[in-house]
């Protein structure tokens, strides 16, 4: 075999080390930078507050404000100064601010939850007769809807906003009454938002046409 022009000649050390540098350099450049890690969550500082819906202490009037929203009237406006009288037999007997109220809550009637007191804030009562302020409504709900209240207390029902990490910030929870009207608590159906609009994805309309036609 023929020898190449460089073979047999001593290769200067510098050249070889240059090569090493290039190799090491390219290997180093591929090395991952050590990943930084943020500190673990610290002790809890943030609070969990439950939102207080207006519905607990006020009622819609027939008047609209400048934004077109019904003006709300606090229950105490009337009830602090006058007797409520007796509970009517049915919702047809409701008058003034309560007229037209729909009650669809199983077999419950007004007295199941409300207490008639003369003067003072309107009040609720638990099944054992203990009086409750309206702000404590959730305790009342909980006495029948135990599993739901359990789920709620563990953050798996009712939703929240804010921080999962309470060492960094606070969290706001919804109140039962935010989503469920206690008088007819079923969640009202609504139109879904943001329909998928992928290219070539048949719409609901096209689909039903195809399966029927």
């Amino acid at each position: 075999m023929r020898h190449g022009p460089c073979e047999g000649r001593p290769v200067p050390f510098l050249q070889r080390s240059d090569l090493c540098l290039v190799v090491c350099g390219s290997l180093l450049s591929c090395a991952d930078r050590p990943r930084e890690v943020a500190p673990a969550p610290g002790p809890q500082q943030g609070a969990t507050t439950v939102h207080e819906p207006e519905k607990l202490v006020s009622v819609e009037s027939a008047h609209l404000d400048s934004l077109g929203k019904p003006v709300r009237v606090r229950c105490a406006t009337c009830h602090a100064i006058r007797d409520a009288g007796v509970f009517p037999e049915s919702t047809d007997g409701l008058r003034e601010f309560h007229a037209g109220l729909v009650v669809k809550h199983g077999p419950l009637s007004c007295g199941s939850c409300h207490v008639l007191l003369s003067g003072g804030e309107p009040t609720l009562h638990l099944s054992d007769g203990t009086h409750l302020m309206t702000q404590d409504t959730m305790r009342l709900c909980a006495q029948c809807h135990g599993p739901k209240f359990r789920d709620y207390s563990h953050g798996t029902h009712g939703g929240m906003t804010g921080y999962w990490d309470l060492s960094k910030g606070s969290r706001t929870r919804n109140h039962c009454v935010d989503c469920h009207d206690p008088h007819s608590p079923a969640f009202a159906p609504s139109r879904p938002v943001l329909p998928p609009r992928d290219r070539f994805l048949p719409s609901a309309h096209e689909r039903s046409e195809r399966s029927h036609g």
Partner: peptide, 20 residues
């Protein structure tokens, strides 16, 4: 940053649970 995901905050029924 410790905050909840956007999808969870938007959920009106609280069907979503997120955490450590």
């Amino acid at each position: 940053a410790g905050r909840l995901p956007a999808c969870l905050e938007a959920c009106p029924t609280g069907a979503r649970v997120f955490g450590n």
